[in-house]
Amino acid sequence: MPIIFFKLNNYLDPGTGSLLVQLLAAGLLGGIGILLKTFWGRIKAFLKGEKYVPPAPAVEDEDQEDSAE
């Protein structure tokens, strides 16, 4: 399946977190992978008995969005 970048004609912001949860709710294994990755930092910190420090937000290049199709 080709990768499609969704910033097309939707007027609602679907929300990044909501998109990822949809993968899980859809029963697709990919969703579990992404969520595991999401919470991996926390899981690692928990196993090591450390305090979780969230990573700095990634800076995104806005120009990427429409060039993908």
């Binding site: 977190g17 995104e60 990427q64």
Partner: peptide, 14 residues
């Protein structure tokens, strides 16, 4: 993911 745009999310396909 609040205030974050994650490349993975934009590439979510269902």
């Amino acid at each position: 993911y609040s205030d974050k745009q994650v490349a993975q999310a934009r590439a979510v396909t269902l």
